[in-house]
């Protein structure tokens, strides 16, 4: 049986792992390669690296980090942050990333999703969607969730799937950093309307939150950062708990 995935997310700044609470306040949580290896050994199903300071001159540094990670671990990983062109993707996949994720660049130029899917295959194109609810309507936000757009989240999710995205990484900015649970309703709505997997992100605070997002939220995978980095929830414990709750999980 296909299992639900647990995905630690490592935010990278200047080659180090950090996690922003609501993306603003940053704390240092260590060396990304070492952390990746620990997560892989602990049973993480996949990893996501988000380069939150990605600028053109940093691209080479990021590719070097990707190579180090690819050499060290034997589970899949996605790299995101500041990726906007087919050339950016080529460099990162060539360095050993399994998938890339794009966010603001896709909103700015949706055609880039088609281009990337055509060039490298849908399986390696993850579209990250940051969403925030405004007066009862979910709108896509860009630039780390700071900038609202006129795109409605559900419609945008459908569009990126139609354009060839292989997976959606859905981050609720309303839930991110709150530790009050994932955005289950919105995740379920999007996951059940699409034929591609949805990774839920934002709001994980305890183990039942993961159970909820896999059941009520119909998520295919759940992503979290700080609760893993600061060992509030050890991955082996989380997995045992979920198996005990009847969720299909890789041991």
């Amino acid at each position: 049986m296909l299992t639900k995935r647990i995905i630690p997310c490592l935010d990278i700044k200047d080659g180090r792992t950090v996690k922003g609470v609501n993306f603003v306040q940053l704390r240092d949580a260590g060396d990304p390669v070492e952390l990746a290896k620990i997560y892989s050994d602990e049973g993480a199903d996949e990893l996501v690296f988000l380069d939150i300071t990605a600028t053109v001159d940093k691209r080479k540094t990021l590719a070097e980090l990707v190579t180090k990670v690819a050499k060290a671990i034997n589970i899949p990983f996605t790299v995101g942050g500041g990726i906007s062109t087919v050339e950016d993707v080529k460099v990162l996949l060539g360095a050993g990333a399994d998938k890339i994720s794009i966010n603001s660049a896709a909103v700015k130029n949706p055609g880039v999703i088609d281009e990337m899917a055509k060039e490298f295959g849908s399986q390696c194109v993850v579209v990250a969607i940051d969403t925030r609810n405004m007066d009862g309507i979910d709108f896509v936000h860009t630039h780390g969730g700071r900038k609202p757009t006129l795109l409605k989240t559900q419609a945008w999710a459908q569009e990126v799937a139609d354009r060839g995205a292989g997976e959606i990484l859905l981050t609720s900015m309303d839930h991110d950093g709150t530790k009050s649970g994932f955005a289950n309703e919105l995740t379920a709505e999007i996951s059940s309307s699409l034929s591609i997997p949805v990774i839920a992100s934002g709001g994980a605070g305890n183990m039942p939150h993961f159970k909820d997002v896999f059941t009520f939220g119909k998520a295919d995978a759940a992503l979290a950062a700080s609760i893993f980095h600061f060992k509030e929830i050890p991955i082996p414990e989380l997995k045992s708990y979920l198996i005990g709750e009847g969720i299909s999980i890789r041991k």
Binding site: L2, T3, R5, K218, D220
Partner: peptide, 13 residues
């Protein structure tokens, strides 16, 4: 299609 998405992505036994 709600239960089974294609591609088959993830860990399976």
């Amino acid at each position: 299609s709600q239960e089974f998405k294609v591609p088959h992505i993830g860990w399976n036994e």
